[in-house]
Structure formats: structure tokens, C-alpha cells
Design a protein around this nucleic acid. Structure first.
Length: 813
RNA sequence: GCCGAAGUGGCGGAACUGGUAGACGCGACAGUCUCAAAAACUGUUGAGGGGCAACUCUCGUGUCGGUUCGAGCCCGACCUUCGGCACCA
């Protein structure tokens, strides 16, 4: 007697059984080939929403599929547990961030289990726990030793709302804070940086990686490599011990067109180079640029302004005396902070020169140029003119010649500049890993000895944001002794950017309990690098770039042997609700719980995959969920109902086998390529087909059972509970998830008959069912003989006949 | 401004390397069951036209043009949407 499909019952039952049997625990000594499939760990905001499921369900399906294919799959989960929301919630509700975070983790763990994912919970990692952040701090010390961490006073991004500094990567293109949308301001602060720029070049190489072009482009743009030359302009007189101004240019071929030089207003040499009679005006200008917001200043519509500062430099290639100006269109942070002005061949310089009446000297002839004035800057290449000995050269060749010449004479050199800046890791907030450094009046900056790690967060700190770290006001934390001299000293009170925590969690999963180091080197050799990493593309220049840098740094320090953390990266699209990506802070989250209660986790998992291609994301809309539920019910009823053959036919059995084998093939290929939507469509088709066969009773019991078995195996990754339950009910032993993924026989997928399409002048006129082995001559004959074809051909002459084997005949008249 | 991705029924989306456009699902309509409704099941469903009918014709993948026996797919121009970078020298 068939019973009803009650997801709530079977899902709970199997989740408990899987957990009790440790079914999904990846054993280090398992002889099967190892495979590491990872999903970005979530921030424990409190509630798992549909967006989380969208990221996690398909990756779980893929991991399950690989597991059935015979891999020893490591598929872990953890929590990215440091960060601002915990602290903000703590301030709001008067609860300690640790309590708040751990409570959320408990809740989310239960919700994650309700999804029926194959996470290996024995390896869970929680980044805010001392046994974890101890090693985050340890890495900081290693970076410091290796010269990759340094403290510097620099103008930094400041979010007035979050009351902390931000990395460049955390400031949106419009100048707003990535977290809260508040316009970011500038602040001059002494902060800790990681030398990511040292790896700029290596980070541009993706050899051996299977990453999307889109993702690589985002990272390449961010790194922003420019090839050019650094050129020295001699100062007329030495100032502050400096004899020359160096500029960076990508167009050394235009050096003879320099009619002014521009220095960034914040440049330390401005004060020295300003002549007394220009002083008042220059200072007034600099004060004015300071008042400009970052957004105003960075805008391309921003008008070019500037002042002449009184001094001159000599262009050493032609001896020209060139005035020095200062203007806020030149950025101190890029290149050398000084730019050579070539108005004829640079849009910005042109605009500037027009406004201030500076000479415009053409040195690369535009096509059809008659020697007259330019209406706008000519940016292209051409023949060099007004360039002394280099006249007549094509400008690209001329650039090389000029570089050779400058290098010989010591006037400049070829060089490469990057847009990317060093990673600012200090944060003026409580809820993060304390930076393990001590300041001693006698010894200066002293690292905390490894044996004294972790530097624990004091539980009794007041975490109200004041613009400085709350730790600064916690006397018991700040006051310490100098590890070097034993005298009184103060601790660094800033904490680390949480992206430092997420730089290595994937390595920690390989040996989560290890306490002799951040990871067990042997286990890392076994599991790393990650074979498949999935997560949102919003981390392109954050987590994904930082982690690549981090791993390269570890390699150079000698801690790991690999250079890239993630071999294949797949970015799922965002799941949006009302135009915006679902997030708790935005308040537009949709909880899966109600849906799970109504139709079961299996239906929700499958529905999320069915919405569309995984990398496209989409608007959340539950209207189609019922269809998924209907389908699973049909599967349930069909399988539990039993099968009675009536008129068994060998043709029908053959057709059923063909359907099964083509389904296996397509489902397998779709899973390999993350095409979950079409995989499910195919499974539905197979179900529909089986339904018809069941009704007709045209195959033997064995053939039926075999087909059902295959359907269940194909369903196992997507709807693990339903597949497991039906597997048991059809008399199989626990567990379907330990069974081998079915293979297909290409021979059995072949059709005996095909539909031959007949076109006349490219228009579909008829379809004929013919033997798959039809010859061209036969196909022509069949096509020309069809009545409907003849009606369209009439008595026109057949000019040509195109035959595509197995597909169509096109008659051209 | 530069770079990249994408535009297909009422909706989400299929369509392998140029070869049957609209798979699969939602919704809608009709039917079965029911006192009725819900659920479930069955059928129809791109638009327009012709025919009593089996059927048949025309149009149709953002717009315009091109290549080809044949274009959703390739090429050119444009429109729209989304994303990245942007005074980066």
C-alpha cells in the first residue's frame, strides 16, 4: 500500500542517520582520489536565507555528484565570524559580540543541516575563536618577519558611519563605503599594510587556473598594470636635497611635446618648489583642493584647475625650460605623483593647457595633419615630428628609441606602474583579531612572541565606536610589558580586517584541530589546492584577490608548496529580491524555512537550481515552487505504486533503455558544467516518460526496475532525502549516496529512426521519419517524393540540394 | 569615456560546433473527480489568417542591414539593461 510523500518526516529521518553514520566525513586515509570542493563560508548574521541556499545547494549537488563518481570529497563548512554586524548588534542590544555570534552560528548550523547538505561538520571552522585567530595573528607575525607587513602614515579611506578605515577594495566606485553606503572621507593615519603590490605582476597570471574571463578581467582592471617609462626632469636648482623630478608616462614618444609639468598638491616637494611670490596663491589652491570631497575630485566632469608654482624643470631631451604647476588632477598615489604635461597628445593636459594658455606642441602627426592647431588632443600613433633626432619615426618605434636613448644617458628608464595599492589591514573596531604588536618607548615596534599568542580580545571592553579602537580604552589590554626589554609598553589596539581571517580558512579545514601550527603540512599536501571553489563575484577584488596574494606570500615564506588556492572558480549569480541582492543588512531576506516546512528541502533545493543558469542568479519568486513539489510527488507515487507489465514489447524496452542512457549522459554532462536547470528538465522528461511506460505496462519488471534504479541514482545529488527514502523502499541497502554514479553506453543512446527535416529554400516544409542509416541518395529521393514538398517545388527547377546527414534535406529552387 | 556580459511566448527559461525556435516548468483556458471548492489528473496554449474537417499558409528570437542553400547563433551599425574600471598620466 503506497503512502504519501511527507518530506518533513523523511528529511529529518535521513539527516539524523547520515549524521549518526558520519556518512559525509572525508577521511584522510580514504584510498579514493581526493577532491576538495568548497563553498564560501557565510557570515553568521543569524538567519540563513534563500540567497545562502542559492549559493550552497547547487555546490552541494556538485560535491555529491563527485562523491558518487568515486572521489573522496572534502566538502566543509564554517563561519566567517568576525566583523562589524556583531559589534553593531552588540551595541544595540547590549550583548557581547561573542555571545551574539555564537548564538547565530548555532541557529545557522541547524538551518544548514535542514538543507540536507553533505557538509563534513567534523571540520567546522569558526574564525572568531581563539584557537583560530591565534593563527591569524601568527600569520601577521610571519608577514612582518618577511617584510610583507609594515606600518605607515598615509592618507586612508575613512567611513564616518562605520568609524573605521577601509581598504581601497572596500570603497565602491562612487566613493561610498561598501558596507553601509556612506561617502568615504580621507584621513591621515598610521596604519598597518600588507605588501600586496609586491605580487601585482604574479597576480596577473592565471596559468593553470580555470576561472571565468569576467572574473579575471575584474582583477586585471583592479591591478591596473601600465607599461611605460620613468623620466627625470632636472630641477633648475636643488631643493630639499632633490635635483630632479621624476614622472611616469605611458607615452615616452611624446616627450618632446612637454610644455608643462604637474605635481600633485599633496606632494611633499610642492612647498619647496613654490617660489615666494607664488606662495600665497599656491597655498590657497591647496587649501581649496583639500575641501573637495573625494567624489568631487575623482569625477571626470571635474574641471581642470591648477596654479603655476614658480619653479621650472629642464626637459633633458631637448633642453626646454618647463614650468611646474600643481593641479588636483594629478594623484599622489599613482606613478610618481608628478606628470609631464603633453597637451597635444593627452585629453586632460589639453584641457588644462587650453584653460591656462599653455603651449600645445604637436610631436606625433595625426593622419592628414596640415600643421595647424588641434581641436582636441590626438591620442593615436603616427609619425614623430618636432622631436629632434627622432623625427620621422613611427611613434611606437620612437618610444622604444627614446627609452633606449634615455637609458643610455641615464635620463630615464622603462618601468611598470600599477593601480593596485598595498592592502590596509588595520581596523579601529573591537570585533576582529587583535594585531599582535607592541609599542615600547625604548625598543619601538616589537612583535608579540609566537609563544604569547593568541593576543586575546578582552571580554570586558566597551565597544562603542569612537573613531578609535575600543581596545584603546581598555587599560588591562593596552598596558603590557615589552617582549624585548621587559619595560612598560602599549599594545597595538587596532584589529585586523576580517578578510585576513578568510584568507586561510580553506587551509584550516584540512586539519581543523591542529595546534602545532595553523595547519598540518602533511594534510595540506593531501588536500590543497581547492579543486572547485564557488561563491559570489562580489569578492573578485576582495577575498578572491587577497587569498591569492596570501597563498603566494605563504609559498615565499616557505609554508606551502602551491601558488594558487583555487584551481577552478565558479561564481553563481546573485539572487535578488526587489532589485537588490538579498542581505540581512538590507532587510530584504526571504527565509527558506516556511518553504521547507511546506514542500520539503528537496523541492526547495531543486527549485533554486531550476530557476535558470546558476551563474545568472535571478529574482526570487516562489510561484514555480509548486511545480517542483508536484514533480517530486509524481516521482514518489510512481516509484511507490509498483509496476504491472501487460503487453511487453522488445521495441519498448529498447526505447526505455535508450531514454535511460541518454538521460544519464545528459545529466552527467550538465552536472559537470553546472547546468543544473537543464539537468532537472531532463530528469522531469525521464519521469514523464517512465509515467507513460508504467501506465502502458510495455516493459518487463526487470527493465522497469532497472530504469527506476537509474532515475533514483540520478536524483540522489539533487534531492538526497527523497532518493534515499525511495532507494530503501525499492529494497536497496543504505545508502544510495554510497553507490556508484551510473555510466552510459553510447551505443544504447543511438536512435534507430530519425526525423528527416525537408526544407524548400530554407523553409521547413515536411518531416519524415526514416531509418537512421539512410543514405544521401535515399534521403534525396524521399525528400523529393513528398507530396508537400512537391507542392512547394511545383515545376520549378531544382538548382541545388543540400544534405545534412541525419538531419535535413534543403531543396533550393 | 574605456572594457565586458546580456536582450527569445503572459512569466522563469531551452535550443550540441549555423540546420525542426519555444525543451522543462509556472501561469492561463477547457475537461475529469466533487454537493461545491481545493488538491490531483487529462488536454490545449508564440501571434495572425484560411478551412466543416484531417489540415494549411504567413509572420516571429531588441532594431536596421549583411554573409549563407539555411541565422536566435556569424559579421557591421545602432537601441536597451546589467557589471567592472575611470582625471591612473
Amino acid at each position: 500500500m503506497a503512502s504519501n510523500y511527507v518530506p518533513a518526516e523523511i528529511e529529518k529521518k535521513w539527516q539524523q542517520r547520515w549524521s549518526a553514520e558520519g556518512l559525509y566525513e572525508a577521511k584522510d586515509d580514504d584510498p579514493r582520489p581526493r577532491r576538495y570542493e568548497l563553498t564560501m563560508f557565510p557570515y553568521p548574521s543569524g538567519d540563513l536565507h534563500i540567497g545562502h541556499w542559492y549559493a550552497m545547494a547547487p555546490s552541494d549537488v556538485h560535491a555529491r555528484f563527485k562523491r558518487m563518481q568515486g572521489y573522496n570529497v572534502l566538502h566543509p563548512m564554517g563561519f566567517d565570524a568576525f566583523g562589524l554586524p556583531a559589534e553593531n548588534a552588540a551595541i544595540k542590544h547590549g550583548v557581547h559580540p561573542y555571545i551574539w555570534t555564537m548564538r547565530n552560528i548555532e541557529q545557522m548550523r541547524a538551518q544548514l543541516r535542514s538543507m540536507g547538505s553533505m557538509y563534513d561538520w567534523s571540520r567546522e571552522v569558526v574564525s572568531c575563536q581563539p584557537e583560530y585567530y591565534r593563527w591569524t595573528q601568527w600569520f601577521f607575525l610571519k608577514f612582518y618577519e618577511a617584510g610583507l607587513a609594515y606600518r605607515a602614515e598615509a592618507p586612508v579611506n575613512w567611513c564616518p558611519s562605520c568609524q573605521t578605515v577601509l581598504a581601497n577594495e572596500q570603497v565602491l566606485a562612487n566613493g561610498e563605503c561598501e558596507r553601509c553606503g556612506t561617502p568615504v572621507t580621507r584621513k591621515e593615519l598610521a596604519q598597518w599594510f600588507f605588501r600586496i603590490t609586491k605580487y601585482a605582476d604574479e597576480l596577473l597570471s592565471y596559468d593553470g587556473l580555470d576561472w571565468s574571463e569576467r572574473l579575471m578581467t575584474i582583477q586585471r582592471n583592479w591591478i591596473g598594470r601600465s607599461v611605460g617609462a620613468e623620466i627625470a626632469f632636472r630641477l633648475e636648482r636643488e631643493v630639499a636635497g632633490v635635483r630632479e623630478l621624476r614622472v611616469f608616462t605611458t607615452r615616452p614618444d611624446t616627450i618632446f611635446g612637454v610644455t608643462f609639468v604637474v605635481i600633485a598638491p599633496e606632494h611633499p616637494l610642492v612647498a619647496h618648489l613654490t617660489t615666494p611670490e607664488r606662495k600665497a596663491e599656491v597655498e590657497q589652491y591647496i587649501a581649496w583642493t583639500r575641501r573637495q570631497s573625494e567624489i568631487e575630485r575623482q569625477s571626470t566632469e571635474h574641471e581642470k584647475t591648477g596654479v603655476f608654482i614658480g619653479s621650472y624643470v629642464i626637459n633633458q631631451l631637448n633642453g626646454a625650460r618647463v614650468p611646474i604647476w600643481t593641479s588636483d588632477y594629478v594623484l599622489l598615489s599613482y606613478g610618481t605623483g608628478v606628470v609631464m604635461g603633453v597637451p597635444a597628445h593627452d585629453t586632460r593636459d589639453f584641457e588644462f593647457a587650453k584653460r591656462y594658455g599653455v603651449d600645445i606642441k604637436v610631436v606625433v602627426a595625426p593622419p592628414d595633419w596640415s600643421g595647424g592647431e588641434l581641436a582636441e588632443a590626438y591620442l593615436g600613433h603616427g609619425t614623430m615630428v618636432n622631436s629632434g633626432q627622432f623625427n620621422g619615426l613611427p611613434s611606437q618605434q620612437g618610444a622604444e628609441a627614446i627609452c633606449d636613448f634615455m637609458e643610455q644617458k641615464g635620463l630615464g628608464k622603462r618601468t611598470v606602474t600599477y593601480r593596485i595599492r598595498d592592502w590596509l589591514v588595520s581596523r579601529q573596531r573591537y570585533w576582529g583579531a587583535p594585531i599582535p604588536m607592541v609599542y615600547c618607548d625604548r625598543c619601538g615596534i616589537v612583535p608579540v612572541p609566537e609563544k604569547d599568542l593568541p593576543v586575546l580580545l578582552p571580554p570586558d571592553a566597551e565597544f562603542k565606536p569612537t573613531g578609535e579602537s575600543p581596545l584603546k580604552y581598555c587599560a588591562s589590554f593596552v598596558n603590557t610589558t615589552c617582549p624585548a626589554c621587559g619595560g612598560p609598553a602599549r599594545r597595538e589596539t587596532d584589529t585586523m580586517d576580517t578578510f585576513m581571517c578568510s584568507n586561510w580558512y580553506f587551509i584550516r579545514y584540512t586539519s581543523p584541530g591542529y595546534d602545532k601550527g595553523p595547519f598540518d603540512p602533511e594534510k595540506v599536501r593531501m588536500w590543497m589546492p581547492v579543486n572547485l571553489y564557488t561563491g559570489g563575484i562580489e569578492h573578485a577584488v576582495l577575498h578572491l584577490l587577497y587569498s591569492r596574494f596570501f597563498v603566494k606570500a605563504l609559498r615565499d615564506i616557505g609554508l606551502v608548496k602551491f601558488s594558487e588556492p583555487f584551481i577552478k572558480m565558479f561564481n553563481q549569480g546573485p539572487i535578488v529580491q526587489g532589485k537588490h541582492k538579498m542581505s540581512k543588512s538590507r532587510g530584504n531576506v526571504v527565509a527558506p524555512d516556511q518553504y521547507v516546512a511546506e514542500v520539503g528541502a528537496d523541492a526547495v533545493r531543486a527549485y533554486l537550481m531550476f530557476i535558470g543558469p546558476w551563474d545568472q542568479g535571478g529574482e526570487w519568486n516562489d510561484s514555480g515552487l509548486v511545480g517542483m513539489s508536484r514533480w517530486l510527488n509524481r516521482v514518489w507515487n510512481m516509484v511507490t505504486e509498483g509496476y504491472q507489465p501487460s503487453a511487453v514489447g522488445t521495441e519498448e524496452e529498447k526505447a526505455l533503455r535508450r531514454m535511460a542512457h541518454t538521460s544519464i549522459k545528459r545529466v552527467t554532462q550538465d552536472l559537470e558544467a553546472f547546468r543544473f536547470n537543464t539537468m532537472l528538465a531532463r530528469l522531469m522528461e525521464l519521469t514523464n516518460y517512465l509515467g507513460d511506460v508504467q501506465e502502458a505496462g510495455t516493459v518487463s519488471v526487470q527493465a522497469w526496475d532497472e530504469a527506476v534504479e537509474r532515475l533514483l541514482l540520478l536524483l540522489a545529488p539533487s534531492t538526497p532525502h527523497l532518493a534515499e527514502e525511495l532507494w530503501e523502499r525499492t529494497g536497496h541497502a543504505f545508502s544510495i549516496h554510497n553507490r556508484q554514479w551510473p555510466g552510459w553506453d553510447e551505443e544504447l543512446t543511438r536512435e534507430d529512426e530519425i526525423t528527416l527535416v525537408v526544407q524548400v529554400n530554407g523553409k521547413l516544409r515536411d518531416r519524415v521519419t526514416v531509418s537512421a542509416s539512410i543514405t544521401e541518395a535515399e534521403a534525396r529521393e524521399v525528400a523529393l517524393g513528398r507530396e508537400r514538398v512537391r507542392a512547394h517545388v511545383g515545376n520549378k527547377q531544382v538548382r541545388r540540394l543540400v544534405y545534412v546527414p541525419g538531419k535535413l534535406v534543403n531543396i533550393v529552387v
